[in-house]
């Protein structure tokens, strides 16, 4: 298995590092303060390969905090709001796109 750090990093625009929290699997984003947040708004945004690589390295090192870290594209709105950059990340951020069976409240 190739470690994420050995893989070629290619980013085309603003990006974040995301992973799943180890103890429960929840989607998390790497923050600028060397932590994880479940809120994309808290994510550290990187725009160039060296910073992306550094952020990813630091995220991967925290294997106990979260697993499967990788770089994901985001879009930055006019107000500075961070939004997921593709369908997969939209699904991770806001859940499935489908109607589930109704569950009694």
């Amino acid at each position: 298995m190739t470690s994420p750090l050995e893989q070629k990093i290619r980013i085309t625009g603003p990006s974040v590092v995301t992973a799943n929290r180890t103890w429960d699997g929840t989607v998390v984003y790497r923050t600028a303060t060397k932590g994880w947040s479940t809120d994309l708004a808290d994510a550290a945004v990187v725009r160039a390969v060296p910073e992306a690589r550094a952020l990813l390295a630091e995220a991967v090192a925290d294997d106990l905090g979260a697993v499967g870290a990788y770089i994901a594209p985001v879009e930055i709105g006019e107000s500075g709001k961070i939004a997921p950059g593709n369908l997969r990340e939209r699904i991770r951020a806001s859940g499935v796109t489908i109607d589930l069976l109704p569950v009694p409240a």
């Binding site: 298995m1 799943n20 429960d24 699997g25 989607v27 294997d63 697993v67 997969r88 859940g95």
Partner: peptide, 24 residues
């Protein structure tokens, strides 16, 4: 933290535990 994810992955898989988009 005694086991890394790399070491644990096979063990969890052998018990039917995947890591998917939203959770395990």
């Amino acid at each position: 933290g005694e086991l890394t994810e790399d070491e644990f992955k096979m063990l969890r898989l052998q018990n039917g535990v995947y890591l998917q988009l939203h959770a395990y």
